[in-house]
């Protein structure tokens, strides 16, 4: 987290002088100095960094250079859209990925598995934006079934959370971006689950479980799946992080009003506080996910519970 903070902070210093940007060519030297003082840019680097860290810890990232509003507000306003998109596509990717992975591992020889495996190559090799564009072309332009962009109608829940999940147009708008965002992860998870499952199915304990007369269902879905999931959890964890990070591309393609789109705008206008805040947010997401993954390991694998078993 600290390293991420350092990088985010260094943005302020290496991506040009924001003061010039904000005040334009005609501003006087006095104006500039005044603004610098107001933004705290006249103080030593270490002090600035310290203040940045302290503020960041309180989710305070300063004021956007462009829209002159607090960055935190901007992000909070956009966050629900991104989170909804990311969570839905993650669920889509995980559920379908594990399901298809199990299917292709158990029915290795059926033509349907072979078809799925071949198709999955597309998911792995096509870039996200191309998939997005193709989906828009097919379902929005040609067939006209689903909207091509935006988030549809949204409903407010609580103070700041807006959701598109409760309206038909919101749900309909969600389908294409969610598939676009999740497809790569889906194929990745599926191929991983399949490979792991095949490996686990050839182990002695699976053979012994079968020799004990346990039904196929119990052997496959209880004994084999649990062992398959250990390595899969790691990858899923890492991939969930990238889902949020990769949302930038999908959000751009679908003009989804989320944090990723905000970041792209920020980059275009050298709106450094927003960029820094976004970086910090992504860093936080990765750290949290890794923590959750480690805890999940602990829950699934008794071998890691060193003290728990000794009682």
């Amino acid at each position: 987290m600290f390293v991420v903070a350092l990088i985010a902070f260094s943005l302020f210093h290496y991506v040009g002088d924001p003061v010039l940007n904000m005040l334009g060519q005609e501003a006087t030297e006095a104006d500039r100095a005044e603004l610098r003082a107001r933004l705290g840019l006249d103080q030593p680097v270490v002090v600035q960094f310290y203040r940045f860290i302290v503020n960041a810890a309180q989710f305070e990232f300063g004021i956007s250079y462009r829209s002159a509003r607090p960055v935190t507000d901007l992000i909070m306003e956009r966050l629900p859209a991104t989170l909804e998109l990311a969570i839905i596509s993650a669920i889509f990717a995980v559920v379908m990925g594990i399901g298809l992975g199990i299917f292709t591992a158990l029915r290795r020889r059926s033509w349907l598995s072979k078809f799925i495996m071949t198709t999955s190559l597309i998911g792995v090799s096509l870039p996200t934006f191309l998939i997005g564009v193709l989906l828009i072309y097919l379902f929005a332009v040609e067939l006209g079934w689903l909207p091509a962009f935006g988030r549809g109608q949204t409903v407010h829940i609580g103070d700041w959370w807006t959701t598109g999940l409760l309206t038909t147009s919101g749900l309909r708008s969600l389908i294409l971006p969610a598939i676009t965002l999740g497809l790569f992860q889906l194929t990745l998870i599926m191929r991983l689950v399949r490979a792991e499952m095949l490996e686990v199915l050839s182990t002695d304990y699976i053979k012994f479980a079968r020799a004990r007369g346990l039904s196929k269902r119990v052997v496959n879905l209880r004994h084999a799946l649990k062992n398959t999931l250990i390595p899969v959890i790691t990858i899923i964890g890492l991939q969930l992080g990238t889902i949020i990070a990769f949302a930038i591309i999908t959000e751009t393609v679908f003009q989804w009003p989320g944090v990723g789109a905000l970041f792209i705008t920020a980059v275009r206008f050298v709106d450094i506080p927003v960029m820094a805040a976004y970086l910090m947010m992504i860093g936080l997401v990765f750290v949290v996910i890794n923590l959750v993954v480690d805890l999940l390991y602990y829950a699934v694998d008794p071998r890691l519970r060193v003290q728990g078993g000794a009682k």
Partner: peptide, 28 residues
């Protein structure tokens, strides 16, 4: 296969070579 499954364990048992790998590590 489905008629054979009930025989395994109930009428024919089997013990494998390596006890270290015969037990599923994730279940007590």
């Amino acid at each position: 296969e489905e008629d054979f499954v009930p025989l395994r364990g109930r009428h024919i048992g089997m013990i494998f070579q390596d006890p270290l790998t015969s037990l599923n590590p994730l279940f007590s």
